Amino acid sequence: MTEHPRDTPQFYLTAPSACPYLPGKEERKVFTHLVGERAATLNDVLTQGGFRRSQSIAYRPACEGCRACVSVRILVDEFVEGRSFRRTAKDNDDLIGVMRQPSPTSEQYGLFRAYVNARHGAGGMADMSVLDYAMMVEDTHVQTRLVEYRRRGPDTRINGRGVGDLFAVALTDVLSDGLSMVYSFYNPNVPERSLGTFLILDHIAKAKEMGLPYVYLGYWVNGSRKMDYKRRFLPQERLSPQGWDRIEA
């Protein structure tokens, strides 16, 4: 048996399963564990190399004969907010997103269940219990934050907090070079707000305030309509075998 240094990550390959994005395709993933003192540094390096985080696991697609999944990150300082983005920002100007420690609540889970039931009722998260949700939020060895979105109140300018019911939540990793949007969910009953788009716009603004150059959006999947929205946030970079390629349009 080969001995491995304690701090050297070990990578594993999952068995094939049905692809959730492209009908008739199978997916496989390569993954490793994000634990211990070096978890945050490893998460930085792997995210920059096209991995995504789920709880204490970092993974990326390793599908035979398919390269449809492409890592995308937004160039924060050069992002151009077009007319439709400005309209979305204006429609949600009454909301404020506050970064908090990753602590799950029953209110979050209620919103999560409403979102999943409305948008992903047949997906892999459909059966997640409150304990599963708590694990998704708390099981992290890296710098993770929950961004909670509520209405602005009369004291918001003073205390920086929102009031009233939750509209949206984003589970976000703070990396050395950006914000990585791990998972987001929101009120499905106000489609006119385009909350999914607004959360990305707000993360771009937050990254700029924090002096971070990128917002990592995960995978754009060529041929998947539900992932096509990621192409709109320009300029952006997409990861190819040669490295990060700039995309203008």
Rank of each mutant, 00 (worst) to 15 (best):
H120G: 11
G121L: 05
G121N: 06
A122R: 10
A122I: 02
A122Q: 12
G123S: 10
G123Y: 08
G123P: 08
G124D: 13
G124I: 09
G124S: 13
M125C: 10
A126M: 08
D127P: 02
M128H: 12
M128R: 02
M128D: 05
M128K: 05
M128C: 11
V130Q: 08
V130H: 04
L131F: 09
L131H: 13
D132R: 05
D132E: 04
Y133W: 07
Y133H: 03
Y133Q: 05
Y133A: 04
M135P: 04
M135D: 13
M135K: 13
M135S: 15
M136N: 12
V137R: 00
V137P: 01
V137Y: 06
E138M: 14
E138I: 04
E138K: 15
E138N: 11
D139I: 02
D139W: 04
T140P: 02
Q143I: 08
Q143G: 06
Q143W: 01
T144G: 04
L146Y: 04
L146E: 08
L146F: 06
V147G: 00
V147K: 00
V147H: 01
R150N: 04
R150K: 14
R151G: 09
R151M: 08
R152T: 14
G153C: 10
G153W: 06
P154V: 14
D155Y: 05
D155M: 08
T156S: 12
T156L: 05
T156V: 11
T156P: 13
T156H: 12
R157I: 07
I158T: 14
I158Q: 14
G160V: 09
R161G: 00
G162N: 09
G162K: 06
G162Q: 01
G164N: 11
G164M: 09
D165R: 15
L166M: 06
L166G: 04
L166H: 09
A168Y: 06
A168E: 07
V169M: 03
V169P: 04
V169Y: 02
A170W: 00
A170L: 03
A170H: 02
T172K: 00
D173R: 06
D173C: 07
D173A: 07
L175H: 04
S176T: 14
S176N: 14
D177P: 06
D177E: 08
D177K: 12
D177T: 13
G178F: 03
L179H: 03
S180G: 02
M181F: 00
V182I: 15
V182K: 08
Y183P: 00
Y183W: 15
S184C: 14
S184I: 10
F185E: 10
Y186F: 15
P188L: 06
P188C: 08
P188F: 10
P188Q: 10
N189W: 11
N189H: 13
N189A: 04
N189L: 03
V190D: 08
V190R: 12
V190Q: 12
P191M: 09
P191K: 11
P191W: 08
P191A: 10
E192W: 00
R193Q: 14
S194D: 11
S194A: 15
S194M: 15
L195T: 11
G196F: 07
G196L: 01
G196D: 12
T197L: 08
T197Y: 02
T197P: 10
T197D: 13
F198L: 11
L199N: 03
